[in-house]
Structures are given as structure tokens and as C-alpha cells.
Design a protein around this nucleic acid. Structure first.
Lengths: 159, 159
DNA sequence: TATTGTTATACTCTATAACTATA
DNA sequence: TATAGTTATAGAGTATAACAATA
């Protein structure tokens, strides 16, 4: 120790650059800075696009709960997003015949057209990232991220 | 091709699981789910904590612009956060003598005490993650994230 | 004139609770 | 009673523009 603390002494702590949360935040922001303009051009937010993608990727209608799970959105957020997408006629809701509480969601014709138009641009941007960073390297990185996520979910510190 | 498209055909696209943005989003969320409760216990948001940390890590007062750069917060967001932290007497502002537009920010005594109290808990959580995932492995992951971020910043597609 | 920082606005998302309607 | 989904609220971040004070 080199003397008592004064109000101008820095508190020893892990620096931002070496911090996992900051590294993740910045990588995510840098990545979205690539994709956001592409979907923003079509007046879609990132979350709206996630919903459209989930519906586009399914070969059958999905109920709200399923979409929430697949897009990692909370039900209230999703409700608002669905209302917005429906008001723009990008999706359709059909009450399930067996359970009237459920509504089945599908892309409308316009929704499908929009996804068909955006998807290639998005894929191209993705491929550019893969090429720049290295395809295998990127897959390795994603694999590590997934494992970290899984690990953190397992070890959920319950209070 | 196996026939014309019908409204129930899925559009071929990169699945969510293999998607870099989703992998980053989930890893970040899983990570913050560890740290958020620790700082939330002291009624701090993630961004407020970033500001306190930046001030704590510095051995001299910082002006608003510098804090914005180090915490990756936009000026308007930071202004609101600073007002909040000041109202809780966790930070102090002192007008710079040389340039009256600038105000120098420092932690108050209470702010330092708070950081001193939270930091060890936060470090312990961090160490637990390191142990679970592997210290070297985690450092490698962070290094790859940093390089990805740098790459994406270089190739900033300017309009 | 240019810069530092704050305020004003307009959207969005997160998160929790309360509520409706079906089962 | 339990479940699916919506609505209500409260709070916070992002982003851009406009503005005040100072250089």
C-alpha cells in the first residue's frame, strides 16, 4: 500500500475493456448497426423483424405464446408489436377453432413479400460479416456464446 | 424446386440459433441476469452503474464528454443519468475553472462508499463466471468479441 | 462560429400487475 | 381454478433536433 486513500484515488476494478458485459454490449451494438438500417428502411424495428422472421421460418401458423418463446420477447411487448404489424396488414390473426383463447398467426401476402424482399439483403450483410471475420471463426464464436448462455442459465443463482 | 409456394411454406433463412445477433443478445441477457440483481439491490440501473464505475476507475475528475465516451452512453441519456445520480448525492459536479462550459464529475463520499460496497460482490460474480466457463476460454471469447467489434467499426458502411 | 452540455420530443422496449375470456 | 392473451402503468434507453452558455 502506498498511503491512505484520498478522494482522487481510483478504485481498483476490472477495466471496461476486459469486461464481458461491455464486450457483449459493444459487439451487439456494432452488429446491429449493420442490420438496423436494412430493416429500418422498411420501417421495421429489430423486434418487429424478429417476429416476421419467426413466422416466415415456420411452415404452419404459430400461436402468440410460441412466437414469444421463439423471439425471446415478453408477452406484453409482443402484444404491442403484433397490433402494429396487424395494423400494417403484414400479419393475420385467426382464432383457433379448438381453443378460442388462442389466435394463430400467419404472415399476410404483403408480409411474405416484405420478408422475401428484406431477407436477401440481410443475408448478404451476414455473409459479408462472415467473410470479413472468417466463417469458421464466426461459427466458433457463436458456439461459444451459446455455451456461455447455456452455462449461465444452468447456474441461475436463486436468491 | 418442389412446386409453387403456398402460404404455408416456410421461407428459407438462417435460423435464429445460428444467428450472430441473437447469440449476442442472449449471451448479454444471460450475463446481465447475473449482474442486474446485484446492482438493482442498490437501486442502480446498469447504465448508472457504468457511470459510477467510470468515475471510480479514474484517479481524476472527468468531464461529461469523457464519461459519455467511456460508458458508451449518448449525451442526452447521460445528462438524465447524471441528474439522477446527483439528486441521490452519489456524484458531485464542479464547474471547471478554465472552461466554464465543462463540469468536472467526481464521486461523492457516498458514491465511493457505494462503489466500494458493490464492487466486491460484482467481482465475485464475475469470478464465478470465469471459473464456470474457464478463465482462458472467457478471455479468448472477449478477445474475439473485441475483434469482431473492431472489424465492424472499420467496415462501417457509410451512406 | 464552433463546442459543451442540457432540454425537448418521439418512439420503443422491459417488466410487473391487473384484467378478460375461455378452458 | 388455471391458462392465453391483452391492457395498464411505470420506468428507462435511443436518437435527433433545438437551445443556452461559453470559447
Amino acid at each position: 500500500m502506498s498511503g491512505r486513500a484520498t478522494s482522487s484515488d481510483a478504485i481498483a476494478m476490472r477495466p471496461f475493456e476486459a469486461s464481458l458485459p461491455m464486450a457483449l454490449l459493444q459487439a451487439r451494438e456494432a452488429t446491429m448497426r449493420v442490420f438496423r438500417p436494412l430493416i429500418g428502411e422498411h420501417d421495421l424495428t429489430e423486434q418487429q423483424w424478429r417476429v416476421l422472421r419467426a413466422l416466415a421460418a415456420s411452415d404452419e401458423p404459430l400461436d402468440v405464446g410460441t412466437v414469444a418463446a421463439r423471439t425471446f420477447l415478453l408477452a406484453p411487448s409482443l402484444s404491442r408489436i403484433l397490433a402494429k404489424l396487424e395494423s400494417r396488414s403484414l400479419i393475420e390473426r385467426h382464432l383457433a377453432t379448438d381453443d378460442q383463447r388462442r389466435s394463430n398467426l400467419v404472415l399476410s401476402r404483403a408480409g411474405r413479400d416484405l420478408v422475401q424482399r428484406v431477407a436477401p439483403v440481410s443475408e448478404a450483410a451476414y455473409n459479408a460479416i462472415e467473410e470479413g471475420f472468417g466463417t469458421n471463426r464466426l461459427h466458433t464464436l457463436i458456439g461459444e456464446l451459446d455455451e456461455l448462455t447455456a452455462l449461465l442459465h444452468e447456474t441461475g443463482t436463486e436468491p
